[in-house]
């Protein structure tokens, strides 16, 4: 009896995910990050992302995204380096019978950046991610992706000895990407 239940469950699972596919993609975008400090430190530059996903272009998918964000600002130190992050996001896309598949997504991420402070040479951060955009299918296996990402970022405390201060920022990214579905 338990074996039958397991087989039925597996059959149900396989039918539900019959249309799901693994896909990979790359994206390139511009971001603007504004800190929530009194002086409103700001960083704007370009970012590059690589991702792997599993799901449907017209329904749900889950994505693992590696992001590399350039740094042209000096916020934590005179030598703030490139920001690397890894993000996991759940994507819900729609098929309205038009040429594009709009989507929104939500998830979280974590990352790190090398800095050059007296007491810290690296700062870590975590983020809550929201996003929206559209897949533009070229054919069954390829699609373009236009999107907007919002990240609410919380940085590791900065140690001033007399106190430890947490910094937070809001990061907005517009990007264009390309996906290959297998």
């Amino acid at each position: 009896m338990p074996l039958k239940k397991i087989l039925l469950f597996l059959l149900l699972l396989s039918s539900l995910y019959a249309e799901s596919k693994i896909y990979m993609g790359a994206n390139y975008g511009f971001f603007d990050e504004e800190f929530t400090t009194n002086t409103g430190e700001q960083s704007s530059s370009q970012s590059l992302g690589l991702k792997i996903g599993y799901g449907e272009r017209e329904a749900y998918a889950i994505e693992l995204n590696l992001q590399r964000s350039e740094n042209e600002s000096k916020i934590f130190s005179n030598n703030d380096d490139i920001k690397y992050s890894i993000n996991v996001e759940l994507v819900k896309s729609f098929d309205f019978g038009i040429y594009i598949n709009p989507f929104f997504k939500a998830g979280f991420g974590t990352g790190t950046m090398e800095i050059q402070r007296e007491l810290q040479d690296r700062i870590h951060f975590g983020s809550l991610n929201l996003g929206a955009g559209a897949f533009i299918p070229l054919n069954e296996h390829f699609d373009l992706e236009l999107g907007y990402d919002y990240k609410s970022i919380s940085y590791q405390d900065v140690d001033y000895i007399s106190q430890r201060i947490s910094y937070e920022s809001n990061m907005n990214t517009l990007y264009v990407g390309f996906n290959v579905r297998f």
Binding site: F30, D32, Q42, S44, S45, S73, K74, I75, D80, R117
Partner: peptide, 13 residues
Amino acid sequence: SCGDNTETPLSDI
């Protein structure tokens, strides 16, 4: 809405 990049870092020890 994109602003200029900050060029003066937070104070350090």
